[in-house]
Simulated assay, not measured.
Amino acid sequence: MLDRRIILGGIFVAMSAGGAGAADPPSGEALAARLVEAMGGAAAWRKARGLRIAATHYEPDLAGPYDNVLAIALDSPRMRFEGRSAWGMRRTRAVVGDRGWRVSEVSALGPMTPQQVKGDLDWWEAHPYRNVRRLAVGDPGVTPRVGAGGRLELVRPDGSQLMWYRLNTQGEPFAFGVGEATTGTVLGPLEAVPGGVRLPIWSTRMDGTFRGSGQKGQVMPDWPQVDWEKP
């Protein structure tokens, strides 16, 4: 009969060998590389300077769905939103740098307040697709790290958290959030779009207060050709 000490010693050696051979968890840089690759690859994102997304949006406090067209510059604070609906929505606003304008079916054309402009600039800074490009070009303004539950977090130079992504095993984002918020937006499956990248086909806030379906996006080598100034 084998000595019990020999048996236990063999078990200990086997467990130790298994632990030593186990793969280390991925770093923030590795997760970021997976994300960029899953969404079309660094080469395609480096060429992109503009983004356009058309989708149907649903919000519970509105009379019905509306068609929304978003146009943004990926390398400069420049964005334009246009919403149209069968029930009468006619809303457009644009922000370029530190100024913006807006017009709608219920308000005349006029400038946006500084608070409104800041809200859009904060949204632009943390936009999930824009930050994929920032990772692809090696923007020093964001540093990737591993956060709670293995999520990918992006950190500003001052140490504050800009945003986070949840990735599946293929590196595809299925959720993202802004800052340190515990809730955010769920993203649908990715599909190839003009410009050589891959973008989600739908999105929805985790609390259901926003849903976007039929998303058709594209990236381009220059800013979108839209009217940035007041109409």
Rank of each mutant, 00 (worst) to 15 (best):
P26M: 09
E29S: 09
E29M: 06
A30K: 08
A33G: 14
A33V: 04
R34H: 14
R34Q: 15
V36F: 03
V36H: 03
A38G: 01
A38N: 04
M39C: 15
G40M: 10
A42N: 07
A44G: 13
A44F: 14
W45Q: 06
R46H: 04
K47F: 00
K47I: 01
R49Y: 00
R49S: 00
G50C: 05
L51V: 01
I53P: 02
A54M: 05
A55M: 13
A55K: 09
H57L: 07
Y58I: 05
Y58V: 05
D61R: 09
L62H: 12
A63H: 07
G64T: 09
Y66A: 06
N68G: 02
V69A: 04
A71T: 04
I72R: 11
A73D: 15
L74N: 04
D75W: 14
P77Y: 10
R78N: 05
R78D: 02
M79V: 09
M79H: 02
E82F: 11
G83L: 01
G83K: 07
G83D: 11
R84L: 07
R84M: 09
S85H: 05
S85C: 03
W87K: 00
R91M: 11
T92S: 01
T92M: 08
T92K: 01
R93K: 08
R93W: 13
A94I: 02
V95W: 08
R99A: 09
R102E: 06
E105M: 02
V106K: 12
S107I: 01
G110T: 07
P111G: 05
P111C: 06
M112V: 11
T113H: 07
T113W: 11
P114C: 00
P114I: 03
Q115S: 14
Q116H: 08
Q116G: 11
Q116E: 15
V117S: 00
K118I: 00
K118A: 11
G119T: 06
D120Q: 13
D120V: 08
D120K: 06
L121S: 03
D122Q: 02
W124C: 01
E125S: 00
E125I: 03
H127W: 11
P128K: 10
P128D: 12
R134H: 09
L135K: 04
A136T: 11
V137N: 15
G138Q: 07
P140N: 09
P140R: 14
P140E: 06
P140L: 13
V142A: 11
T143Y: 12
P144I: 02
R145P: 02
R145W: 00
R145M: 09
V146R: 15
V146A: 15
G147V: 08
G149H: 08
G149Y: 12
R151W: 12
R151T: 10
R151P: 15
L152A: 03
L152W: 03
E153T: 09
L154P: 07
